[in-house]
Design a binder for these strands. Structure first.
Lengths: 221, 221
DNA sequence: TCTGAACCAGGTAGAAATACCTGGTTTTTT
DNA sequence: AAAAAACCAGGTATTTCTACCTGGTTCAGA
């Protein structure tokens, strides 16, 4: 049984690194280097003219001209079938998150072991993605930071069962009279609960209540 | 060599599911069910009073009272060391993204194979996270959708510049008179635009417009 | 040049939401 | 048993929203 080899492209402005990586790939019988470029524009140019598209594109972040973030986004829109694997020295949460969010299939630190590198390529080729522990943790940290920034004073708000129930109905586009009808209550009672919701949440109107409900998980969009 | 067993908690309002899951866990010698609860408040209560904290908390999304999203966020802030594994029937990208963003260590569909389930628990315990292919792809799709929608209105519904502008202000809790004032327009004009928004989107009221804006990326929560 | 779309803004009505009250019952907590 | 909280619902008044009209200007494309 003969399997087609994994076609790989490399974009990195450090020639030495690029070439030694090429050597490393040659040691794996099932991988094939089909494209080498020193920067983003060169890679895009080569892809546009070249005949055979790679399965996987290894890209660096720090590159002159177009950086890796931009190149990644370009690749995602123009060649959605090519899996992008980012190789970087950056450990900042924000950058990792940005790349993964833009659609990168994997993010590897340049100081990873060559076994993990090879393993990652196989996994990406087979499963479409590869996430290792440091990257996952970085993503978690990034989210946690973002969440903290948003929830400065807020978790103290507690709603009663009725309030929660009515808040959910408001998010389903029901008006007060409709809610009253649905729950067999007086419109006044519903108005009272809605008023309490506005007071407790500090919102100004329905729009605010819907946003509150979504932000704090009372309603899933 | 004797390793301490993985302590697990389950929160799910379906007793049958919870109990059969417990049975499944008993078959793994290295796992130990330390806590069972039917809903979020019960779980939090049990954690607050019980002596031994679980390593991993399995939670459902659809639960009466406090839903899984909220429970997850509560667990993340109160017990950051407990790894949350979400078990859900939902395959919507947005919900998956929401849970992972809130810090869940894994998201599994309830129809996954028991081998994968056990594997996921081991992986989470060992590496702190577990992501399978469908979940990763869902996250990718979610990001891709958001990116597309944020740039240009790629939906069937096309809004004019004024409409978009007013929709965003509505999402910022401004009333029609306030929007009129902000944009130096007559309240009637704003009402006209708002009415067009309702017609175009098929929504019934402000709550609907806010949900529409969020779903289609006109407003980021 | 004509057409259509976007944008602006007036009128009239009625429905709904908001802002203040009032007071009752039930349930939970202390 | 007492206190607190949740829940229910009425009154009055004002503001805002919604649903129908009407017709004007401006600008792009056929």
């Amino acid at each position: 049984m003969t399997m087609s080899r994994i076609k790989i492209a490399i974009t990195d402005d450090h020639t030495l690194f690029r070439q030694s990586l090429a050597l490393l790939l040659q040691q794996s019988a099932d991988m094939e280097l089909v494209l080498e470029a020193a920067d983003g524009p060169a890679m895009l140019e080569a892809l546009a003219t070249g005949s055979q598209l790679p399965d996987i594109a290894l890209i660096d972040i720090d590159m002159p001209g177009m950086n890796g973030v931009e190149l990644n986004e370009q690749l995602q829109t123009r060649y959605p079938d090519i899996k992008v694997v980012v190789l970087s020295i950056y450990t900042q949460e924000r950058i990792i998150s940005r790349m993964i969010n833009a659609g990168a299939a994997a993010y590897l630190f340049k100081n990873c072991e060559k076994e993990e590198f090879i393993q990652a390529i196989h996994t990406v080729h087979k499963s479409g993605f590869y996430v290792n522990k440091p990257v996952f943790e970085a993503l978690q940290r990034f989210r946690k930071q973002n969440n903290e920034l948003r929830n400065i004073n807020a978790i103290a708000i507690e709603l009663t069962n009725r309030e929660t129930e009515i808040l959910r109905l408001i998010c389903q586009e029901y008006s007060n009279p409709e809610i009253a009808d649905k729950l067999s209550l007086s419109v006044r009672t519903v108005e009272g609960h809605r008023n309490n919701l506005l007071l407790k949440t500090g919102c100004r109107n329905t729009a605010g209540l819907v946003l509150f409900a979504i932000r704090y998980g009372f309603f899933i969009v």
